[in-house]
């Protein structure tokens, strides 16, 4: 079984990496070979907590490429005390877009003390994969995303409000003619586009762009 040996060897190489460059290379190699190997996926999740941005980016990219098979390991291995790790995990879940991540993204946008975590969650709430979902369930998921993003529009940090705008724009594209939801989305974006509702110029510019792009 050469593939198993290869993955184990790549995990060992990662665990023994003694420099940032070596860790980055080992993470990239493991991410490329991981497939749905649970040990490899778990190791990639652990890399998120190493406080090494380069390796974390590679691990997040790898976990997103792995997709749904990475969701459970991410949900069950979150280190609640390491806010850097949480931010990367939320980014990975946001990128995968699996609805199993919905609750975590809602909590992260609403409660997390790290602005980078709330930011990633806001973006993720706009890009959940809804294709396999049936009518009422689909609408309920969109409703939860919309409510979380509406509340996130009042966040104290400009970068989170910016991400809320991006989330609202992509969420609006999934709404299939639900007039109430669309109306609320436009209303939230309009507020973030106006000087009276939003102090930060870059957020207003991004919200105006979203309003111009939406039908």
């Amino acid at each position: 079984m050469p593939e198993v040996l290869t993955t184990a060897a790549l995990i060992a190489a990662l665990e023994h990496a003694d420099s940032s460059a070596a860790l980055l290379t080992a993470t990239q190699a493991l991410a490329a070979a991981a497939g749905d190997d649970q040990a490899a996926i778990t190791t990639l999740v652990q890399v998120l907590g190493f406080n090494n941005p380069g390796a974390a980016v590679a691990a997040v990219d790898g976990l997103i490429a792995i997709g749904p098979a990475a969701v459970d390991p991410l949900l069950h291995n979150l280190d609640v005390h390491n806010y850097g790790a949480r931010a990367w995990a939320v980014r990975a879940l946001a990128g995968i877009g699996d609805v199993r991540g919905l609750e975590l993204l809602e909590q992260a946008l609403g409660d997390d003390i790290g602005a980078s975590v709330r930011r990633a969650a806001a973006r993720g709430l706009g890009q959940l994969q809804l294709l396999g979902l049936e009518g009422p369930l689909r609408e309920a998921v969109i409703e939860r995303c919309l409510q979380a993003l509406e509340a996130g529009g009042g966040d104290d940090e400009w970068v989170v409000r910016y991400a809320v705008v991006v989330g609202l724009e992509s969420l609006a594209r999934t709404m299939e003619g639900d007039a109430d939801q669309l109306q609320r989305t436009y209303s939230a974006l309009s507020q973030l586009a106006a000087e009276a509702g939003e102090p930060t110029p870059v957020v207003r510019l991004r919200a105006s762009l979203a309003l111009r792009r939406l039908p």
Binding site: R119, A120, R123, Y162, A163, V166, V202, L205, R206, L209
Partner: peptide, 8 residues
């Protein structure tokens, strides 16, 4: 703005 979106 597009570059910023990609960094969120």
């Amino acid at each position: 703005l597009a570059a910023m979106d990609a960094l969120l």
